[in-house]
Design a protein around this nucleic acid. Structure first.
Lengths: 205, 205
DNA sequence: TGCCGTTATATCGAACCGATATGTCTAGGG
DNA sequence: CCCTAGACATATCGGTTCGATATAACGGCA
């Protein structure tokens, strides 16, 4: 999930981790910013998989690998060289050819099973990298999912109306209204997408 | 987080894990159901902390007190499916005195730092267990948080309008609208809460 | 010069999820 | 009467994510 987000942001510009976090926070999901505790491991995974690579490392000395369980060794090394020694600098990451493949794969696949909300938002944010049919499929699967969720929520409200206090009831009703709006928003997107598809068809005939 | 949800549900009636999962899914957050992989460890944690305890395990005849509005329903369910149904291999959990303390603590505390969306929903769902002033505080903190989030989202949209494609832009704008509606929903809740507070004040004078 | 806020990378423990294993109970078909 | 499919129910495993924390370089400024 995070891999997809990282690759998508790196598609535009090469960046380093700290910038990446900011961009992920503002562009993709302003609601829940990504933490470093997941970002750096994810970057490490991607680098290990050959999907991204360090393009530029601005350091005085060559970068020292501090991965794995070498904490004690590194500490010993630091103690030898003194506490002021530092080779920690920026590591600018860029996406590789393999990364492009992985991005396409992640963006397309696993949208078959009912994905969670953030998964959909992420895919929609990168929808321009999808072929038009896949875009429509994404929107329509999401719509179907929301319709089902709305039905469940409504039946849940009906069946347990009297044993809910006003707070819980208001929460559920507000959630249902939000889902309704999501659906009609999707309808707009689907209509726009269909119109674009039609105009493309006309052009080629 | 999950601990709070479990304790809150157990406040109403004693239940076993499987029922708990269903109730958490339908009542609290219809959007993201809790998985067993987190539910059972959380129950184990709570049991280790002495907040819940096993009330009944694999008994044939149900001597369960089952106070609350659900008692009738459970009885009807048993009558429908037969008296021996679902009484084997189950571990019915109940909340202890320590559990009540922990619940109050979790419900009140840690709402000071900006909590995430699910955290707020959870607290609101159990708002009837809060003292009225704490309810108002909860709502107003949430409102302030959403206002801030909206401002950030808007400035983010403005600053990066042209380098966003239509999908990302639509996503961000839809998110902002949803946040606006959340805010006005909160305004309603705050108004209702204030009115209730006023009427209480009048009663006591 | 010394201090401090920002930028930046990295790790740790705990929580949580999705998949999976295992066991129990009952209904229904042969 | 058995026996198998499927609901009910508990539990664990590997991997991802989060929140907190450590470390360190850099820039401004008093």
């Amino acid at each position: 999930m995070l891999e997809l987000a990282i690759l998508g942001v790196l598609m535009d510009h090469e960046q380093h981790g700290y910038e990446l976090k900011k961009r992920l926070g503002e562009t993709i999901s302003p609601l829940s910013s990504v933490s470093f505790g997941s970002l750096y491991p994810a970057l490490a995974r991607l680098e290990a998989a050959g999907a991204v690579k360090v393009v530029e490392a601005r350091t005085g000395a060559p970068p020292m690998p501090m991965t794995g369980s070498l904490g004690a060794e590194v500490a010993a090394f630091r103690a030898r060289r003194g506490p002021t020694r530092g080779s920690r600098g920026k590591k600018v990451y860029g996406i590789t050819e393999r990364g492009h493949e992985l991005f396409a794969e992640l963006l397309t696949a696993s949208s078959q099973p009912p994905e969670d909300d953030r998964g959909f938002s992420l895919r929609l944010a990168f929808a321009r990298h999808l072929p038009p049919e896949a875009r429509l499929g994404l929107l329509e699967r999401r719509r179907a999912q929301l319709v089902e969720r709305l039905a469940k929520a409504r039946s849940s409200i009906r069946s347990s109306r009297d044993r809910l206090d006003s707070y819980a009831r208001s929460l559920l009703e507000h959630g249902s209204e939000a889902t309704e709006r999501d659906i009609s928003w999707l309808d707009q997107l689907i209509a726009a997408e269909s119109a674009a598809s039609d105009s493309r068809k006309k052009e080629t005939t």
